[in-house]
């Protein structure tokens, strides 16, 4: 399968994701420039971490207007698996592909450290090989990762099984101490209703090799490989769907790009 690693000006985990996908997991991977308007031929899209457009204005706020994002939305609406990591997660929130918003970390400082996250659902293409309740050791590195959603939104997330990862302690207990940034309900990652779009603040690409402290993040990349092998449809769907169909899908999904 083939990963698209989107590169915005200021992305800085693009090369790490590329390395994880190609050299560690052994799949095809290609960088896709932010001005690019074609994702055909790709099976999975990764929005990597970094400081797209310097994170000026607000994290992800400018990146969502990049030309490539129209295609990412189209890809997502067509059911293609999309993974937003850290800044990529922030961009997905800004683009309205995922609900909620990011605040600055509780202590107002950038935080880089190992965290433990518990897999809350295995229904997404990125967690299919995980056991629900499985604890992964994956690091964080962000200044704005304090996930916020209002109460009604949180209920929705819970009801639709959209919470994918929660910060826990090493044994999988959700505790205030294991919440590194103040996120609502210790949320570390979520998905859209369909489950094909996943965003998370921790960096699975940094925990793919034991030498770096943990190889727990591999399962996230391996899951999507297995998922696509099982389905074998995403690429076909993407290639076959003509523009009209895509517009219909977009309408059905509740809005074209630009509406939130």
């Amino acid at each position: 399968m083939k990963f698209a690693i989107v590169v915005f000006p200021g992305s800085n985990c693009d090369r790490d994701c590329f390395y994880a996908a190609r050299d560690v997991i052994g799949q095809e991977a290609e960088f896709v420039w932010h001005t690019h308007r074609d994702l055909s031929g790709f099976d999975c899209v990764i929005l990597p971490g970094g400081f797209s457009y310097g994170d000026y204005l607000r994290s992800g706020a400018i990146a969502r207007f990049a030309p490539v994002m129209t295609e990412v939305e189209r890809f997502a609406r067509a059911g293609g698996p999309v993974l937003g990591i850290c800044n990529g997660f922030q961009i997905l929130l800004e683009a309205g592909l995922l609900p909620g918003a990011m605040l600055r970390n509780r202590d107002l400082q950038f935080r880089c450290e190992e965290t433990f996250i518990r897999v809350e659902t295995s229904r997404t293409p990125f967690t299919g090989l995980c056991r629900e309740g499985q604890v992964l050791k994956v690091p964080i590195a962000h200044g704005e990762g304090n996930y916020f959603i209002d109460e009604a939104g949180l209920k929705d997330l819970e009801a639709n099984r959209q919470i994918v990862f929660r910060y826990t302690d090493a044994s999988g207990r959700v505790t205030p101490e294991s919440n590194p940034n103040g996120s609502v309900s210790n949320i570390a990652g979520i998905c859209n209703r369909q489950g094909n779009v996943v965003g998370l603040m921790p960096h699975p690409e940094r925990s793919c090799e034991g030498m770096l402290g943990s190889a727990d993040g591999r399962v996230i990349f391996e899951s999507v490989v297995a998922d696509l092998a099982g389905r074998g449809v995403a690429r076909a769907a993407n290639a076959l769907m003509d523009r009209q169909t895509i517009h219909q899908v977009e309408k059905a999904a509740g809005g074209a790009s630009g509406c939130r």
Binding site: R15, D16, F110, R111, C112, H203, R206, L212
Partner: peptide, 14 residues
């Protein structure tokens, strides 16, 4: 100090 620095990016920090 160092938890404010991203010391892992580039995935080579052993």
């Amino acid at each position: 100090v160092y938890r404010q620095y991203d010391y892992m990016v580039q995935t080579n920090t052993v």
